[in-house]
């Protein structure tokens, strides 16, 4: 196998990034999805559209704005510098922030669909059985939305593995810090190292196919996006 240490470094970094991003997205996306699924507020439309933006925007656009915001002259960058945290651009933290935003809709939307599919009734039943709203969320909503969580995790993870533009814009191309597999492939192709590019690209292809197979194959006749 013609893969070298830098290739394995990129693979390891990619997996680390995707795992952390997925974890953060489940924590952040669950309340957002719950709110979107339940609220009757006027804000539902704008917030829903905002969360869905990464579906349609070129990743470079997201990366560009993030670079400006997180950079030393951006409003977030200034804050983090003032707090003594330095700037997060061109660091792993910056990649995580970018990935969380970029993959947000792939986690929020399946969760939102799963929550919406539960409907009001199980929540009402739980209330008449003395469960507080918080209790109900953990004892009824989460178990019933399990298929949605599986879908959200798989899509969030896989989509983060596949990102390129955002990473390149705010992460740059620093080995073992911000150079993920997709960037590594780009570098190999630039350097005419087609054999290594083939191995990595092929691995990505097989990985992505297997992930989607797991997702679509496991739910006979059901939408991969919706709940049960």
């Amino acid at each position: 196998m013609p893969l070298d240490a830098s290739d394995f470094g990129a693979i390891w970094l990619t997996l680390k990034l995707a795992s952390l991003t997925t974890l953060l997205l489940l924590l952040l996306g669950t309340p957002v999805a719950w709110w979107l699924a339940r609220t009757r507020s006027w804000w539902r439309g704008p917030v829903g559209a905002l969360v869905a933006l990464p579906l349609v925007l070129p990743p470079t656009v997201i990366g560009f704005y993030l670079l400006l915001a997180l950079g030393p002259h951006g409003f977030i960058g200034k804050t983090t510098e003032a707090l003594g945290l330095g700037t997060v651009v061109f660091s792993f933290s910056g990649l995580v922030i970018g990935s969380v935003i970029y993959s947000m809709p792939f986690v929020v939307q399946p969760l939102q669909n799963a929550f919406a599919a539960i409907g009001d009734r199980p929540l009402e039943v739980a209330a008449t059985l003395r469960a507080s709203p918080r209790d109900t969320f953990f004892s009824v909503v989460l178990p019933l939305a399990r298929p949605g969580f599986v879908t959200a995790s798989i899509l969030g993870f896989a989509h983060t593995v596949g990102e390129f533009g955002v990473v390149l814009m705010i992460g740059g191309n620093i080995p073992d810090k911000t150079r993920v597999v997709s960037v590594q492939i780009f570098d190999h192709v630039e350097a005419m190292e087609y054999a290594q590019a083939h191995w990595l690209a092929g691995a990505m292809l097989v990985f992505s196919f297997l992930v989607l197979l797991a997702l679509y194959g496991s739910r006979r006749g059901k939408s991969a996006w919706g709940a049960t």
Binding site: R121, A127, L129
Partner: peptide, 30 residues
Amino acid sequence: VPPHQRPIGYVFQEASLFSHLTVRDNLAFG
């Protein structure tokens, strides 16, 4: 007083059992 603090028992038109639980766990829920 929110519903979960009222000492009521409520039976819905459709039994609305929790599909993720067994009969025993449905009964034990309340």
